[in-house]
């Protein structure tokens, strides 16, 4: 049976892993290669690196980090942040990324999704969507690290990128990110039920039951978390054992 994936997420800037709350207030969480190796040993199914660097100087660093990680860690690596053109996709894949995630640039230029998928295959194109709940109960797509409202509906946009060839959707609830209150399950289920590609739930994990809920109630194919792993609250192995005890198929 296909197992549900647990994906630790590493936000990287200036060569270090950091973690913020509601997209601001960064704390240092350590060396990316060291952290990647630790999660691999704990049984992580995949790793996601988000380059949250604002400068182009810092941006080149992520290529070296991915090269280092890819030579030592043999599980799938997804890299996102600052991907603006098909050439950026190529550079990241050449550095050792298996999948490349795009967010703001996909909204600005949806053809980027179609072009990258046509050239490199859907399997390596992930579209990340940052979602914020609206007063009317739906969700709006935000870009630029959550600073720019787009007026676009999240479920509609998810369907559009899937149609354009995105192989996977990384769905982050901005309201829950860093809150430790659990995933926005309504949002996760709405998107997961609407698209035919796998959905990764992200934003808000504070305990292991939240991971279970993301799968059982959010219908996610994979769950992503950062802080519960970075600060040693739980290991990936503990998370998987708990999920298995709740009847979720995981690779142990």
């Amino acid at each position: 049976m296909l197992t549900k994936r647990i994906i630790p997420c590493l936000d990287v800037t200036a060569g270090r892993v950091v973690k913020g709350v509601n997209f601001v207030g960064l704390r240092d969480a350590g060396d990316p290669v060291e952290i990647a190796r630790r999660y691999d040993l704990q049984g992580a199914d995949e790793l996601t690196f988000l380059d949250i660097t604002a400068t182009s100087d810092g941006r080149d660093l992520i290529l070296h980090i991915i090269e280092d990680v890819a030579s030592q860690v043999f599980i799938p690596l997804t890299v996102g942040g600052g991907v603006r053109a098909v050439g950026d996709v190529r550079r990241l894949l050449n550095a050792g990324a298996d999948k490349v995630s795009m967010n703001s640039s996909a909204v600005a230029n949806p053809d980027l999704v179609s072009d990258a998928a046509a050239y490199y295959g859907s399997q390596c194109i992930v579209v990340a969507i940052d979602a914020k709940k609206t007063d009317s109960g739906s969700w709006e797509v935000f870009t630029h690290g959550g600073r720019t409202a787009t007026g676009m509906d999240v479920v509609t946009w998810a369907g559009e990128v899937a149609k354009r060839g995105a192989g996977e959707i990384l769905l982050t609830s901005m309201n829950r990110d860093g809150s430790k209150d659990g995933f926005d399950l309504e949002l996760t289920a709405a998107v997961s039920d609407a698209v035919s590609v796998p959905v990764i739930a992200s934003g808000g994990v504070g305990n292991l039951q939240h991971l279970v809920d993301g799968i059982t109630k959010g219908h996610a194919d994979a769950v992503l978390a950062a802080s519960i792993f970075h600060y040693g609250e739980f290991t990936v192995k503990q998370a998987k054992e708990y999920m298995a005890s709740q009847g979720i198929p995981v690779r142990i």
Binding site: M1, L2, T3, R5, D45, G167, S192, D193
Partner: peptide
Amino acid sequence: SAYKVPHMGWN
């Protein structure tokens, strides 16, 4: 839940 294609993940 519905089966998704591509078949992606650990099996």
